[in-house]
């Protein structure tokens, strides 16, 4: 039923998807975290209150989030080429995936920080803590379970986006599903990729929940 060639194609495609999701999530978190921190701390009454910066950042993030992924992917092709030398393939797909995920992560992280009791931040201020100390020793540890869930949600979303990236030659499970499942009428391959995607999403969510839960239980 599943011949060795098929199996190895599925395996490669799964690895490609994992690479895109993993790299995309990691890069988007690294770049989105500072943005999320800035978004949260420049808000009114917060430790780095800056109304103009806050509004500008908020605007950029909202625009970033409202561009449909498929359009963003095409629109930034020149940028992708500049960065990785090609616009096709798994590595190339990481660029639009990351760019699309940054504003998403930033907004989720901003939300996670908003959940912190302002009294706790105020207590740190009353002890003479500087803004960097408050960010790294109070805000991030206090919001850690929520931050983990934010990253999890981003990864889950990127699984979906990566399938879309596959449609324009990004590689991975989406690519496989389109080329074999759709264009060559291989319903079995279509089904198999979908099952793997579902399992991936389940796995990521369970892992994220578990880590967050463990951190939260402790508190």
């Amino acid at each position: 039923m599943i011949n060795p060639v098929m199996l190895s194609m599925l395996w490669t495609a799964t690895l490609d998807t994992l690479t895109m999701v993993g790299l995309g999530t990691a890069l988007a978190t690294v770049l989105g975290l500072p943005l999320g921190i800035l978004l949260a701390t420049t808000a009114p009454k917060h430790i780095l209150e800056q109304p103009l910066v806050h509004r500008a950042l908020g605007g950029i993030v909202n625009i970033g989030r409202s561009v449909p992924f498929i359009i963003l992917m095409v629109a930034i092709i020149p940028f992708t080429r500049l960065l990785v030398g090609s616009s096709i393939g798994t590595t190339a797909a990481v660029v639009p995936l990351t760019v699309a995920a940054i504003p998403f992560v930033a907004r989720l992280i901003d939300g996670a920080f908003k959940e912190i009791d302002p009294g706790v931040i105020e207590a740190a201020e009353s002890m003479g803590a500087s803004p960097p100390v408050i960010i790294f020793k109070v805000m991030i540890p206090e919001a850690l379970p929520a931050l983990i869930l934010a990253v999890t949600l981003t990864a889950v979303n990127l699984v979906g986006y990566s399938a879309m990236a596959g449609a324009i030659g990004g590689g991975g499970l989406g690519d496989l599903a389109i080329r074999y499942g759709y264009q060559r009428f291989r319903g079995d391959i279509m089904l198999q990729t979908v099952v793997i995607l579902v399992l991936l999403v389940q796995g990521i969510q369970m892992l994220g929940d578990k880590i967050a839960q463990r951190l939260y239980h402790r508190q």
């Binding site: 009791d117 009294g119 706790v120 105020e122 207590a123 201020e125 009353s126 002890m127 003479g128 109070v138 540890p141 206090e142 850690l144 951190l215 402790r218 508190q219």
Partner: peptide, 18 residues
């Protein structure tokens, strides 16, 4: 610096839960 020389306690305690 001045705040480091002043202690403060709060109605809702404001402890770090983590």
């Amino acid at each position: 610096q001045a705040r480091k020389e002043t202690g403060m306690i709060f109605q809702h305690f404001n402890l770090l839960s983590s």
